[in-house]
């Protein structure tokens, strides 16, 4: 049986993560591990017994979190609750996932983003960039509208050679989950060269060429997957912002967006950000980030 590990915190983000994990395991008969990571207590005894007091506080806090998660999950089958002590939340979750042989890590959005969207905080960023497992992230407020089933998988396809691996993985997931797969390509035309010299329309022309190219590329992939049932759908869009691009697609209840992990180096990520980050933050549905191909 495959295992989904949810990184739980006793707040709204934790609720969203639990809601997404529950949908996933209910639909596909996976087992669920709810993991609460607590900071490591200082190992050396102090004369004032502060270490013991702190240790007790952590234990109570962790137990309270697990109690809350239990109350939320109710009678969901195949659930285990674990506590994990680690110096950092991200390292703890990754270690716990390894220990539990997890196949998927589910997280909630960081707290500083808008409702209905995902915000990538430091912890999610660290996990995304170092995990060897797929990561699913629930948007803020997802628990209120959580669907009982994963309605469809939408895989973002860049058209690059490396993206074919992502498509195959997405196909594998969709087939295993008996859900339809849709491949989408989207681009953002948000910049203009000043002065434009040959007129403002030049960039429109490039965007149009990109749209044709992306569509042809998706058609080719679709042709290779003609035996897939239900058939693979495709869609392409070019908009001025990532938000507009993602909102322009229709999204079914319980739909999930699948992304390949960024191939960019650390420096580039830190200083420039990546398209993947922007896409995740603009997505109106939960996002699954597949690990970088080894």
């Amino acid at each position: 049986m495959q295992t989904c590990l949810v990184g739980y915190t006793p707040d709204a983000a934790g609720e969203d993560a639990l809601a997404l994990a529950r949908t996933w395991v209910r639909a596909h008969g996976w087992s669920l591990v709810v993991c609460v990571v607590a900071p490591e207590a200082w190992g050396h005894p102090s004369l004032a017994r502060l270490d013991v007091e702190y240790g007790n506080f952590l234990a109570q806090h962790t137990q309270a979190a697990i109690d809350k998660a239990q109350a939320l999950l109710g009678d969901t089958p195949n659930v285990r609750y674990i506590k994990f002590a680690s110096a950092s939340a991200s390292a703890g979750l990754l270690e716990a996932a390894k220990q539990e042989n997890a196949d998927l890590i589910v997280l909630g959005s960081a707290r500083n983003g808008p409702e209905g969207r995902i915000s990538i905080g430091g912890m999610i960023g660290e996990i995304m960039h170092s995990s060897e497992l797929p990561i699913a992230i629930a948007p803020r407020g997802y628990s209120a509208s959580a669907s009982a089933v994963v309605g469809r998988f939408t895989c973002a396809y860049s058209g690059l050679e490396a993206a074919s691996g992502t498509v195959l993985e997405a196909l594998g997931i969709a087939t295993a989950m008996e859900a339809p797969l849709r491949l989408v390509s989207f681009a953002v035309r948000d910049r203009q060269m000043y002065p434009p010299l040959i007129g403002y329309q030049a960039e429109e022309s490039l965007a149009e060429a990109w749209r044709e190219q992306a569509l042809a590329s998706l058609e080719r992939v679709k042709k290779q997957l003609t035996r897939q049932q239900p058939p693979v759908a495709i869609a392409v869009t070019v908009k001025e912002t990532w938000e507009e691009a993602l909102s322009s697609f229709d999204w079914l209840p319980g739909e999930m967006l699948i992304l390949g992990s960024s191939r960019m180096g650390v420096l580039k990520r830190v200083f420039l950000g990546s398209n993947a980050n922007k896409i995740i933050q603009a997505s109106p549905v939960p996002v699954m980030v597949l690990p970088r191909a080894s």
Binding site: A187, V188, R189, Q192, Y200, Q201, E203, E204, S205, A207, E208, R211, T237, V238, K239, E240
Partner: peptide
């Protein structure tokens, strides 16, 4: 038609 695809910027 060729040049005014989607994503046109308004100015």
């Amino acid at each position: 038609r060729a040049d005014h695809g989607s994503g046109e910027l308004k100015r």
